[in-house]
Every structure is written in structure tokens, then in C-alpha cells.
Design a protein around this nucleic acid. Structure first.
Length: 835
DNA sequence: CTCTCCCT
């Protein structure tokens, strides 16, 4: 008797649509029967011939369950018409026509046989989850269909789907099926001011207990929030069973959550996203949704992935609410305002994940230009290529032989690189590391908090050697160890190893192997602070207070919490730094590094030996003229032109040059302003710095010479003539000209300070600048007191001198004060010479 | 002193 499903009436339409068009989008909510009924219906399609159907499932449990369900429906055993293929486990027979596979398997199948010989249709189940492997598989399949296999049928199936966009991407018709579920009433209980999510949720639990029958499922972002909420709910209610459900729980604990509660007991399940898709809970009548989830976000800048608490999408909210309507009408309480708009769909994993596995697949495929639904972001792609080059999987952008082997091994690129570098005698240990690295830590209790990764390996070995009694009571989850051992067995088969590792490997064996997987996360202890480490990628990290790794000089960091300052190391293993010399000799550089020590006013040279950003050795080396020069010039640029040892001579020389440049531009004198001198240090000053290590070794005389050398011979002669240092006055003495200070006004008239009597006999103001600029006379009394400032000596003699003379005569009677200064003899003494 | 989930 064929059982009827909501999707059953649509099956002929689905088959017919695919006969006319090789792609289809099928939207059907949970309970419609699409996962099991569609593959069986396609089996009868004429266009399929005797080809196979491949169906992708995002989870191994779902793949196995779907295959079993279909086999049962056919009245067969699994491995006959219907089989499955997941990692380390396949039940496929010679007659198998429907293969249910997990997402990673499809890219393997396509890479191994791009024409997909013998496959007539591929179904992508639960495509709305938008896993990385699903997106890649779909894009590869579309590429195959477009270029090699136009007859290949592709069916994208989903519960909640961005149907219009997907249909456009696929250029495919859409068929929608009703589901089999009951109506769910949506409520938005408002939060009180200052209320935490946990308090709000606990209050809503009370409301749900009053308003509904059956069990309550609440969604929270993480374990911490679950524990806080549990504390509040348990305080408020007796006779209510509160169950936590999250990924860190043992299988036994998860089973407890899934088992039916005692009759008459209301149960409240506090869950993370596990309960959104992976775990099915019976008997839920009310859902309480915090609207939050935690998701990994890859940061290409740092190369690390961190968990972020995000606001869920509308599709997730609907999925969560749907959990309340499986058995009867239900209620969903949403802890956010009804007015808030959520994003329609969740962000695809491809947009926010680490992409080294994807890039390796694409390198093997030979093209990144395949029909993506969402194109992978360039930043993460670039980071992935860098990592793959570092691991030896790519040279520039082509896949290497090692890269192909890594892909064939089927571990993440990092772990695959480490596995393939290991000598065969270590393969048993490698198998354990692959299994342990891919699983959550099996350690529990006190030991669960250790950051020494070796403790996980030790727990596995103890358990393997001595069974459940071998593992110390309470310090490890036996079920988790069993699952890890199963995976390790799979890796052993793939590596061609018969027996598992046992006993205690030497202290560095584990770190030495894993260092090959995380060459960018090699860490060296700080010299000053034993809790701090420097990572090879240039970042800082620290151990937590009770670290078991304290004292290790070298670590490979396996897991950390990213922080702008020092990240916190969650897991690591010590290793022997000699492997770096042996295996990564090309990443060592020895470089001369020059530094200016401002406090000591000295250029220092070091020879540094580095591994990436880690400075391993630094020794002082003599500073040669050639390499001190850049440091000195940089120091001068930093300190400014005034920091140079300017002598009075040099200052005056520079001032005169500045003046003449303005007075006689036709001479083409160089610009000697601060900015111009700083900008051209390497031309005019560099020759005088040669061989010097300290700035103070630059003598004032050097600077004067360097300034003077800015002029050629003709300019120098013009300078002496037209911007002279001093002027001879009628008394026969020479007096200095005062030039303005740069850069105030380089062309200002220079000042000649002179006693009045020294100018007797001089009719007019002396001029400089080839006669273009009168000097500014500061006329002084015999005692040097200022009498008058003027640029018009002639006018002074004529108009002012008669007045001034009277006064000066009284005050300085011993000095000559002639009535006719034009013809008088100039003197700098009290009495004219020879009188 | 800590973290959702999934997979070759």
C-alpha cells in the first residue's frame, strides 16, 4: 500500500518538468516527503534510463536515514537499489541506483570523473542551509552540465528558499509543495527595560507554561546563555524539567534531551542552533526564540576564524517557529519587536568562511570561473591561496603534486599537508591527530580545561589500550572517544596503516607533526614575559593563568580566541624548533636591520635572523657609512632642519643665499628654505654624513661647507659681491650686514649697524643686490645707542643731522661733529686720526 | 579561562 505524502500529487509534474528542462527548483517545507519520495519517483523517469541518481545531504545521519527509509519503502535492504556513501562508510551495491551522499563526496565524484558517467540526476537536499560544500558541489555540477553533460538533471530542493533568486541563477522552473504541519501562532512578548535576554526568556517560559501544553523549545546563541537561563528557570519552577542541548554535550546527554519526559512533567529544552536543523525533538508545542545565533566568521586579515553572535534571518526564525507545529497547533514567542526587519536569508557560508579547501578544489578543477550562486569573496580567496602556497599545495596558482595528494586524502588542507609530510612510522599517530583535530575535545571535568593538546591524544591512547577503565574516570567522554577512534580507524585505512598508535609519544612528536599544519601559528615565548608568545604571523598571544603549557619555549597554536591585543591560547602543543630549520629553511631570513636610537643619538645596525615575523637572533654589527646614511637622514627629517648644528657662519651664509635668490632671481640660486633643504638632504648633506654613525658627529664646519657647496663658482662670486657678509664704511672699518632670518622674509633689506661718525663723507645709502636694494642703516651714537633707522642717508644728512648734531655735541664733546658731514673724515675713534 | 555547526 503506497503511503501518501503531501508531495505525492506533485511527483508526475516534477518528473515531467525535468523531461523538458534539465533543472528544477523544488520548494517544500519539512514533512512534505521530498527527501524520500522525489528520488524514488525519478527512478521511474524515462529520461533517466539506467543511470544513477545522486542525492546530497548536509549531514551524515540524514544521509543514512534517508537511504534506509527509501530501501524500506522498496522492501529491500540498504545497498541494493538504494545506498549511501559518507566518509569512511559506504553501502553501495552493483545494482544501486540511488546514492545518498554527504556534501563533501560530490566534489570528489566530480573531480574524479568530470563527465559523471553513469549519473543521470543530482538532487541537492536542504540547499537553503547554504553550506560551503553544497555551494561548491552545485556550481561544479552546473559547470559539468553546461560543458559536458547537457542531459544531466539538477534538482535543488529546500524547505525555505530564496526561490526566485535560486530559480534565476539556475534558469529553472519552480515547483512548490505544501507541507504537513499545523499552524503556529506568532507572538512578540516585549522585553522590560534593562532586562537581559536570559531574564526575558525565562519570563517567557512562564508565559508559555501557562498558555500551552506540551514541551517548550527555546533557542539561545550559546552555552553560556543556556546555563544562565537554566539557573533562572530552575529557581522559578519545581516539577519542570530543564534540559540543555548544545554541541558540546555527550551523545548520552543528547539522548536524554531527546527521550520522552516522565508523564506529567513539563519539559523546557534550552538549545543552540543544533535544534534548528540537526536534532528533531518530538512533542514541542511552544518555541521561544531569542533571535540570536553564534556563527563563525573568518577574518582574512588575521587568518583566524572567530565566533560572532548574530541576529538570525527571517528564514531561520521561520524554521525555528516551525518546530512548534509538528504534532499540533503551536505558538512561537519571538523575543524581538514585531517591527524589526530581519534579513530574508542567512548569509551563505561561502561568504564568511575560511576557503583553503575550496581554493584547492578549484585549483584541481582548473577554473574559478564556475556558475556561483554567490561568488567567494576575494579577500578570503587570496588568504587561502597564500596558505596553500605555504603548505606546498600551490605554486603561484597551479596545483602541485602534493596538492593533488592532499585533495585525495580528504582532510582539510592544513591537516592533509601535515599528514603527507609525516614519515610512515608516524602514520598511526597522524591518524589519531586527524581524528582528534576534527572533533570536539573528548576531555571533561578538570582535564577538559587544559590547553595542552597532548592530553587529548593521551586520553585516546589510554582508552584504546585499556578500554573504558583506561581512560581516567570523569576526565573524558567515552562515547566521544569511541567516535574519535572510529574516525581514526578510517584515517588509518586511508593511510594504509594496520594498527593504532599507543603509549605516550615523545614530548614533541605531536607538536612537530602539527607544526606542519599551522606553520603560520608557530609561537615563540617572549623573553620578558613567560605567559606571552609571538606568533609567526606577527601577532601576539598569551596563555591563560592555569595553563599546562607554561614554560614551553616553542608552541604550535591550534586554537585561540582572537583579540586585537593578545589573543588567548585555547589549545597548543610544544614542538622542537629544529624542525623549522630542517623543513622550512626557506622561511628563515638573515637581514641587516638599521635603526636610529633617538635617545642615544646613534644609528645602530643589527643582523637579524628571523622566521617570518619571529626574531630568533639579533646581534649588533658595525654600522657602515652606506647603511648608517639612511638612518641619519631619517633622523634629520624627523628632527627638522633646526636640529642640525648651525654655526653663526652657516646661518649667515644661508641667509645671504636666501636674500640673493630673491634679489637676483636670474642667477638661479637654490632654494634654502627649511622645506627645500629637508627635501633635498640626500643631495646636499649626504656627502658630509658619509662614514658618520651619530648625528652629533656632523660638525658645524661640515654644515657650512655643505651649505656653501650648494653654489657654483659664479654664484659664489655673485654672492660675495651682491649679498656681502660685510661692508667697508668710510672709516675704513668693515661692518657686518644683518640678514633677516629665514624663512620670514628672505628678500628683506639687510641691516648695517654703524656709528654715525663712521659714515662721514658718505653721501648716499650703500646698496647691495647689484644696486637694487638699499641697506637699512641703524645709525648709532659713539656709545652705540640707536639714533635713527633709515634707508635714506642723503636725506638724513640734509634734514635730521643738524638737529641730532646739537644733542650729540653736548653729550659727546670729545668727538668731532662737523657741520658738513659730506666732506668730513670718517672715524671710529674719539678724535680724527692725526689731529 | 572558552565556542554554533558540518564535511571529503
Amino acid at each position: 500500500m503506497p503511503v501518501s505524502y503531501p508531495i505525492t500529487p506533485l511527483l508526475p509534474e516534477i518528473v515531467a518538468s525535468l523531461a523538458g528542462h534539465p533543472r528544477l527548483v523544488l520548494e517544500a517545507p519539512p514533512g512534505a516527503g521530498k527527501t524520500t519520495q522525489v528520488p524514488l519517483a525519478l527512478l521511474e523517469a524515462a529520461w533517466l534510463g539506467d543511470r544513477k541518481i545522486v542525492m546530497l545531504e548536509p549531514r551524515r545521519i540524514a544521509a543514512r536515514a534517508a537511504a534506509e527509509f527509501m530501501a524500506t519503502q522498496l522492501g529491500e535492504d540498504i545497498g541494493q537499489t538504494v545506498g549511501y556513501r559518507i566518509r569512511f562508510d559506504a553501502r553501495i551495491g552493483p545494482r544501486t541506483r540511488i546514492e545518498v551522499v554527504t556534501e563533501g563526496i560530490l566534489s570528489r565524484m566530480i573531480q574524479d570523473d568530470p563527465s559523471l558517467e553513469g549519473t543521470g540526476a543530482i538532487l541537492f537536499d536542504e540547499f537553503h542551509e547554504r553550506h560551503l560544500a553544497g555551494d561548491l558541489g552545485a556550481a561544479l555540477a552546473l559547470d559539468v552540465q553546461a560543458n559536458l553533460r547537457p542531459d544531466l538533471r539538477l534538482i535543488v530542493m529546500s524547505a525555505t528558499l530564496d526561490g526566485e533568486r535560486i530559480a534565476q541563477w539556475l534558469d529553472a522552473p519552480r515547483i512548490s509543495s505544501p507541507g504537513r504541519s499545523y499552524p503556529v501562532r506568532i507572538e512578540h512578548p516585549p522585553a522590560r527595560t534593562q532586562e537581559t535576554v536570559e531574564q526575558h526568556l525565562a519570563r517567557t517560559v512562564n508565559q508559555a507554561l501557562r498558555e500551552t501544553d506540551g514541551d517548550i523549545l527555546a533557542f539561545l546563541p550559546g552555552r553560556r546563555e543556556i546555563e544562565r537561563t537554566r539557573a533562572i528557570v530552575e529557581r522559578q519552577h519545581e516539577g519542570v524539567e530543564v534540559v540543555a542541548l548544545h554541541g558540546e554535550l555527550s551523545l548520552a546527554e543528547q539522548h536524554l534531551a531527546l527521550a520522552a519526559p516522565d508523564p506529567g512533567t513539563r519539559r523546557v529544552v534550552l538549545a543552540t542552533n543544533v535544534a534548528e536543523s540537526s536534532v528533531t525533538l518530538p512533542g514541542i508545542r511552544a518555541v521561544i526564540d531569542s533571535g540570536q545565533a553564534r556563527e563563525p566568521r573568518f577574518d582574512p586579515q588575521s587568518g583566524f576564524t572567530r565566533l560572532e553572535t548574530i541576529t538570525i534571518s527571517q528564514a531561520s526564525a521561520d524554521q525555528r517557529a516551525g518546530r512548534a507545529g509538528r504534532v499540533a497547533e503551536g505558538v512561537a514567542y519571538r523575543l524581538w519587536p514585531q517591527s524589526r526587519r530581519l534579513d530574508a536569508q542567512r548569509t551563505a557560508e561561502i561568504a564568511q568562511a575560511e576557503l583553503s579547501g575550496l581554493v584547492l578544489e578549484l585549483a584541481a578543477w582548473g577554473s574559478e570561473d564556475i556558475p556561483w550562486l554567490d561568488t567567494p569573496p576575494t579577500g578570503a580567496m587570496g588568504q587561502a591561496r597564500d596558505l596553500l602556497r605555504r603548505l606546498g599545495a600551490l605554486d603561484t596558482s597551479r596545483i602541485t603534486t602534493l596538492g593533488r595528494k592532499m585533495l585525495a586524502l580528504g582532510a582539510s588542507p592544513r591537516l592533509a599537508a601535515a599528514a603527507l609530510r609525516a614519515p610512515p612510522e608516524l602514520h598511526p599517530l597522524v591518524a589519531d591527530l586527524l581524528a582528534l583535530m576534527e572533533a570536539r575535545s573528548p576531555l571533561r571535568g578538570e582535564l577538559g580545561r587544559t590547553d595542552d593538546f597532548r592530553a587529548r591524544v593521551a586520553a585516546l591512547h589510554l582508552w584504546r589500550d585499556g578500554g573504558a577503565r583506561g581512560a581516567r574516570a570523569g576526565s573524558a567522554d567515552i562515547a566521544a572517544l569511541a567516535a574519535i577512534e572510529k574516525a581514526a580507524g578510517g584515517w588509518r585505512r586511508r593511510l594504509g596503516v594496520r594498527t593504532g598508535a599507543s603509549g605516550v609519544p615523545h614530548a614533541h612528536a605531536i607538536g612537530d607533526l602539527l607544526a606542519h599544519a599551522f606553520p603560520d601559528r608557530i609561537a615563540r615565548r617572549d623573553e620578558g614575559n613567560a605567559m606571552r608568545y609571538q606568533l609567526a604571523n606577527g601577532r601576539g598571544a598569551r596563555l591563560h593563568e592555569n595553563s599546562a603549557l607554561h614554560g614551553e619555549p616553542w608552541l604550535v597554536v591550534l586554537d585561540l580566541k582572537l583579540d586585537a591585543r593578545d589573543s588567548l591560547i585555547f589549545a597548543g602543543a610544544p614542538f622542537d624548533p629544529r624542525i623549522l630549520e630542517i623543513e622550512y629553511s626557506s622561511r628563515f631570513v638573515t637581514e641587516r636591520v638599521l635603526r636610529w636610537d633617538d635617545a642615544r643619538d646613534i644609528a645602530e645596525a643589527f643582523e637579524e635572523r628571523r622566521f617570518d615575523a619571529l626574531v630568533l637572533e639579533r646581534k649588533s654589527v658595525p654600522v657602515t657609512g652606506a647603511d648608517a646614511l639612511p638612518a641619519l637622514l631619517a633622523a634629520i627629517r624627523a628632527g627638522g632642519i633646526e636640529a642640525l648644528p648651525w654655526s653663526e657662519t652657516a646661518r649667515r651664509l644661508r641667509a645671504r643665499m636666501g636674500a640673493l635668490r630673491v634679489w637676483r632671481p636670474e642667477l638661479g640660486l637654490p632654494d634654502v628654505s627649511d622645506d627645500a633643504l629637508l627635501a633635498s638632504l640626500d643631495r646636499w648633506l649626504a656627502p658630509y654624513l658619509e662614514g658618520k654613525r651619530r648625528l652629533s658627529a656632523l660638525q658645524a664646519a661640515d654644515l657650512s661647507q655643505a651649505i656653501a657647496a650648494l653654489l657654483d663658482y659664479d654664484q659664489r662670486r655673485a654672492l660675495d659681491a651682491d649679498a656681502p657678509d660685510e661692508l667697508r664704511v668710510p672709516s675704513g672699518m668693515t661692518r657686518r650686514l644683518g640678514y633677516g632670518t629665514l624663512p620670514d622674509d628672505p628678500g628683506a633689506s639687510p641691516v648695517l649697524s654703524v656709528k654715525l661718525q663712521e659714515l662721514f663723507g658718505l653721501a648716499d645709502t650703500p646698496r647691495v643686490g647689484a644696486g637694487r636694494v638699499p641697506v637699512t642703516l641703524h645709525l648709532l651714537s659713539p656709545a652705540g645707542r640707536p639714533i635713527q633707522v633709515t634707508q635714506d642717508l642723503h636725506g638724513f644728512w640734509e634734514r635730521t643731522y643738524p638737529e641730532v648734531k646739537k644733542e650729540l655735541k653736548g653729550r659727546y664733546p670729545k668727538h668731532p661733529w662737523p657741520d658738513d658731514p659730506w666732506t668730513a673724515t670718517a672715524t671710529h675713534r674719539a678724535k680724527p686720526r692725526g689731529t
